[in-house]
Design a protein around this nucleic acid. Sequence first.
DNA 1: ATATTTGCTATCAAAAAGATACTACTGTTT
DNA 2: AAACAGTAGTATCTTTTTGATAGCAAATAT
Lengths: 133, 133
Amino acid sequence: MFPHTDPLIHTPEACTASINAVKDALYVLNGKWKLPLIVALSNGPKRFNDIQRALGDITPKILSKELKELELNEFVERKVLADIPLTVIYELTPYSGSLTFVIDELQKWGKQHRTRIVSNRKQLPDQPMTDKL
Amino acid sequence: MFPHTDPLIHTPEACTASINAVKDALYVLNGKWKLPLIVALSNGPKRFNDIQRALGDITPKILSKELKELELNEFVERKVLADIPLTVIYELTPYSGSLTFVIDELQKWGKQHRTRIVSNRKQLPDQPMTDKL
DNA sequence: ATATTTGCTATCAAAAAGATACTACTGTTT
DNA sequence: AAACAGTAGTATCTTTTTGATAGCAAATAT
């Protein structure tokens, strides 16, 4: 119809498409832990207990569940090393690299947001804001 | 090579800092709804029921709760218009604009992810993947 | 007069997350 | 030998969050 329609126009359909794309992303990245977990693995594979320590306050039950979900969605691979004592490592897959920009932006945003909150003193966060206020 | 490894130094402290920045971001953006909700308001203020329709499957109780949280965090402003019949509109604040890149990346990622899933046929999503499979 | 729209709230049920304890195995220390 | 530490988780129970359903009070539409 209108070959030159401005791409900046927000049709209701385009809006719905955007909402759905964001929902699709959140569907696999849902929860408090998946993205921090991927960050935790981003400089090399780690073992179960090391991941738990890196994340600071995740319980083994939740960590186990989250790792399984990340495996199903092909962000993480579980590898059992036949070393004695047996060790299991969790390693990022190449596909997890597709999240680089998402994670970068989220990290940048989190950093500036903390700065803003702290300078405004409207709330008093200590370490990560995930800690009690 | 691991997808997120880069030539920069990854000290354990830097890694923890990254994890915490991401956690800080997720602390305020948690849940299924906050980012889709911001997207829904991104081309202009909307009324309660319009937002509910735009999001497709959120219940009024949850929508109400999410809007209050977004208000507290200064992403959204609630405005009561003294029109008869009384209307309430929800409008994005300037600060919500700081999320543009985060949302853009998430949206791009969601789009490519859906394409990947559909072409792999490992799962069979219909509309948003938030719908039953 | 009845139905619909508006902006919600109340109640209850289901699902997710979290706290705590525990298993089973290897190795090390006492 | 007995106790303790580290490995990778699982089992059970409680709390929190989410969701489904119904309803309210005011106004407009049919």
